[in-house]
Design a protein around this nucleic acid. Structure first.
Lengths: 107, 107
DNA sequence: TATCTTTATCGTAATATTGCAATATTAAAT
DNA sequence: ATTTAATATTGCAATATTACGATAAAGATA
């Protein structure tokens, strides 16, 4: 126990849940907002801006990376984290569809 | 440790994260989709439909209730779980704004 | 009243998440 | 080659989540 029984649900349901899980921490929301507010690419002022330790920020970035939301140059000096626009729009659409396809005929 | 440092983030960031957390489990996504597909209000076929135990479904429903997404009659025989339309649209808007306000000028 | 049905709650086990100190890695700069 | 700066990884402690059996509660029905 303690593990979600993902096999019981559809791929779409699992994907929405997986993405929602990434957004389910305010630090990750803040990171995404901050990266996107910079016109240019941003590396790690995030530690200063967000106020969590460097390893913690690194872990959060990794969660965001896992669902494909970051692109850029991840090696060497000119590190660069930025939003992967295509993936962003894909997820935007996923949530849009989820919210749009709900009826609310109620008692 | 183990606790999110919510006090470091804005109310909006925390609210988005809190709602995302509710959507971050496929069972809760499935529950919301199922309830909404019924034209009428639905009580608990959910246990049969979803395939998790009754206490587990009850807990998931409670998480959904906590963020105000369910309304209906929760007492007596004519139990009824259904989507709270106003709250639904509010959260739809919250996500819409989040996704819309992101720039993606990148390297 | 006794029983049945439905939902909630309690207790508990398994697993996941969050956060950080310490350390490793990597590439540029000196 | 050394040092410096930035990021990643490891290991671990604290807490949260997920799931379910057992049990309780509340209302309908016999």
């Amino acid at each position: 126990m303690g593990t979600s029984k993902t096999f019981m649900f559809s791929p779409k349901q699992n994907e929405l849940a997986q993405v929602a899980k990434v957004l389910a921490h305010p630090a990750r929301v803040a990171i995404l907002e901050y990266i996107s507010k910079q016109d240019a690419c941003i590396c790690n002022d995030l530690v200063d801006i967000i106020g969590l330790s460097q390893p913690t920020i690194s872990q959060h970035l990794n969660e965001i990376k896992k669902i494909g939301l970051l692109k850029g140059n991840f090696e060497g000096k000119n590190l660069c984290y930025c939003i992967n626009q295509e993936r962003w729009e894909e997820l935007q659409q996923t949530f849009h569809v989820f919210f749009a396809n709900i009826n609310h005929n109620c008692c």
